[in-house]
Amino acid sequence: MKHSTVSLARKVKFYQLVVFDQIVASGSLVKAAGALNITQPSLTKIVQELEYFFQAPLLVRGNRGVTATELGELISRRARSMLADLRALNDDVEAYRRGTSGYVLVGSLTSASMSAIPQALHLVKQRAPSLLVSLRVGQMNQLLSVLQVGELDLVVGRIPDDWGWRANVGDLAVVPLYHERLCVVAGRYHPLHSLPTSPWNLMHAYPWILPPRESVLRNSAENIFAKAGMAPPADFTESASILTNLALMQDNQTLSLLPSAVADPFVRSGMIKEVDVGEHLAYGQVGCFFAAHRKREPSLSLLVDCLKKVSQTTAPGDSAFSPAATLSIINH
């Protein structure tokens, strides 16, 4: 008699296969009953139910115990395969609950993707090697838009001073991480490096690289120029490409304003040098953004914990870190 998959699933219980596999492995009903902590009559009933369904003997009883028939061995072999998958499923579920497996989609500004996020990912991989993190770098307004519709789980970026810049941002939850500063940089042999302190009015004579107009960094740059009493550069190139910006600065004439986390590795390598402007240029606070209406999965919470730990113990790009604050809700 041929059984359909549906009828097999209805009639044969998974627990019956677990019991049968234990009997075959033990070679004894008594030992199997002890291992499973059930009575021998209950064990015998399960075997009889399986034999009735398959309409054939599954065990041969002898003086030294029981052995599987050819059909019984086939069923036992298949049962072991399914049990292995069940154990794997159980392990995966437990790992998911602990946050040590899963898939997290993260959006980030360039500054965070070059400092806090790489350090946090090292911690994540130590705690959860199976957790996959996919990173997308972009502008803040673009990243928050896709965060709202669920294409990202998390965005790491600067917390705006005025939330009016993004009228449709919706309800967001944010965990502040650390404070970032900005720095003026140029090629190693730029003339301004020879001055003890570089007056802002001298910088206007040189070409600049400025962030795109729609970026948060561009707004910060314009505020810094205004505070310093410097007219906005007349000769400038708009670029968000770090590699392009580095190449442009090799003329030892072009200036750029970068987050310290972005500039620092290239300053240490000798490709560019920070211009001494005689003051601290605050960029603002960087944090983790969430869609407030969505539940945070354990894997996402693990990544956030690692970001908070990095922010509290390390200072990439000479950023002045502050302890991460309690999760707050921003409503609009």
Rank of each mutant, 00 (worst) to 15 (best):
P199R: 05
G187I: 01
A186Q: 03
H204F: 01
G229I: 05
L105H: 12
W208L: 09
R218V: 02
G229C: 05
T110S: 10
Q142R: 15
R218K: 09
P196A: 13
R136M: 06
V155W: 03
M140R: 12
E151Y: 12
R188S: 12
G157Y: 04
S115T: 06
M203K: 08
K227M: 09
G102Q: 07
N141K: 11
E222S: 04
T110F: 03
R127H: 07
A205K: 10
L131V: 09
G187N: 04
V124C: 12
W208D: 04
A95F: 03
N219K: 07
I224M: 12
P211S: 15
V104L: 09
G99P: 09
R158W: 01
G99I: 00
D153T: 09
S130K: 14
Q119T: 06
V216A: 13
A205Q: 13
S194H: 13
E94D: 13
A228K: 08
Y103P: 01
V133D: 02
Q148H: 14
E180T: 02
G99M: 02
S145W: 10
L202P: 10
L154F: 07
L131D: 08
D153R: 06
A120H: 06
L109T: 13
V184A: 08
V106T: 07
K227N: 05
H190E: 03
G150A: 00
A226T: 05
D92H: 13
V156W: 02
V175K: 01
V104Y: 02
L152Y: 04
Q139E: 15
P207A: 08
S130L: 14
M114V: 00
G107P: 08
V184C: 04
E214F: 04
R188Q: 13
L217P: 01
I159C: 11
G150R: 11
S134H: 14
V137N: 11
H190L: 05
S115L: 04
R166S: 06
V133C: 12
L147N: 09
E214M: 06
A112G: 03
V133S: 00
L172G: 02
S145Y: 09
E214Q: 13
P199Q: 14
D162Q: 11
H122E: 14
M114P: 01
G157P: 02
M203I: 08
V149N: 12
